[in-house]
């Protein structure tokens, strides 16, 4: 059995930053494994540990800097890693969810997995759409926002819980093959062990370009344009307490006492 896990290296902005063009200036960004994908990866690796014939393959659409993130996924227990990138992709200012799903679908068709795990969304652009779009493209069944997942190999299905709003979970039986978009909190993601990190250093990373996966630059065309970006105007009218710690705490205590708190 094969599990394909989509991994994104996401950008995180510092507290203070400047914009340039339609995005945060790169000098204010740092990069890390998308939090949701970390849970998806853990779900796959834990499943592979329970079973003795499950291969975990990660797939990333990203430039060379994402290899650090991919190595971390290998160190945590993924068996293989594929990175999709080439100049045609690099030339695009951004990839919308549908375009990304198109690239991932091409890899999925080659890899022929039984299961695909993705994060619900990426913490940077927050589209929340890639996993379900991918499922539709490759003809898999799916469930979005999964916070409990049990694969039932005998029934060729899965019992999942989907997180709905307001603390309600929907229990769903899903036929395989399927894509599951994984919600944070579903498991406790592991840290990579030193042994895992050393092993990952020696593992090959498979880099594929558009031609390798049977696509061309035209497949990247999208009717969506990122036109502009701005910092949202603060709508707040908060009163800020400033000064030393005991001064601010003292003023805050006054506000609380006025409201009968702690009396």
């Amino acid at each position: 059995m094969k599990v394909l896990v989509t991994i994104k290296q996401v950008a995180e902005a510092t507290d203070e930053f400047e914009l340039s063009g339609g995005d945060i200036d790169e000098s204010y960004l740092s990069y890390d494994l998308n939090e949701w994908d970390n849970y998806a990866l853990e779900e796959a690796v834990a499943f592979a540990e329970e079973e003795d014939d499950v291969e975990v393959v990660t797939v990333t659409v990203g430039p060379e800097r994402s290899e650090e993130t991919i190595r971390m996924a290998l160190a945590k227990g993924a068996d293989r890693a594929i990175r999709v990138w080439d100049e045609a992709i690099a030339e695009r200012e951004w990839l919308d969810a549908e375009t990304k799903a198109e690239l991932l679908a091409a890899v999925a068709r080659e890899e022929d997995p039984d299961l695909v795990f993705t994060g619900v969304q990426a913490s940077d652009d927050g589209f929340g759409a890639t996993g379900v779009a991918l499922a539709e493209k490759i003809g898999f069944e799916w469930a979005a926002v999964v916070n409990s997942l049990a694969i039932d190999r005998e029934a060729d299905g899965a019992h999942v819980h989907r997180e709905l709003e307001g603390g309600v979970e929907e229990l769903v039986d899903v036929e395989l093959p399927a894509v599951f978009t994984v919600q944070t909190g579903i498991n406790e993601p592991r840290y990579a062990s030193m042994r895992g990190i050393r092993r990952a250093q020696g593992q090959p990373l498979e880099v594929r370009d558009m031609a390798d996966i049977g696509l061309s630059a035209a497949d990247l065309d999208s009717p969506l344009r990122r036109l502009s970006a701005r910092k949202p105007e603060s709508e707040g009218d908060a009163t800020f307490f400033e000064g030393s710690h005991d001064e601010t705490a003292g003023e805050l205590a006054g506000v609380l006492r006025e409201r009968g708190v702690g009396e």
Partner: peptide, 17 residues
């Protein structure tokens, strides 16, 4: 108009369709 980076930035997406 949608937000990115956990509400730190508002982005305008144009739909040419």
């Amino acid at each position: 108009t949608r937000e990115m980076y956990g509400s730190k930035v508002e982005t305008a997406i144009g739909v040419e369709s």
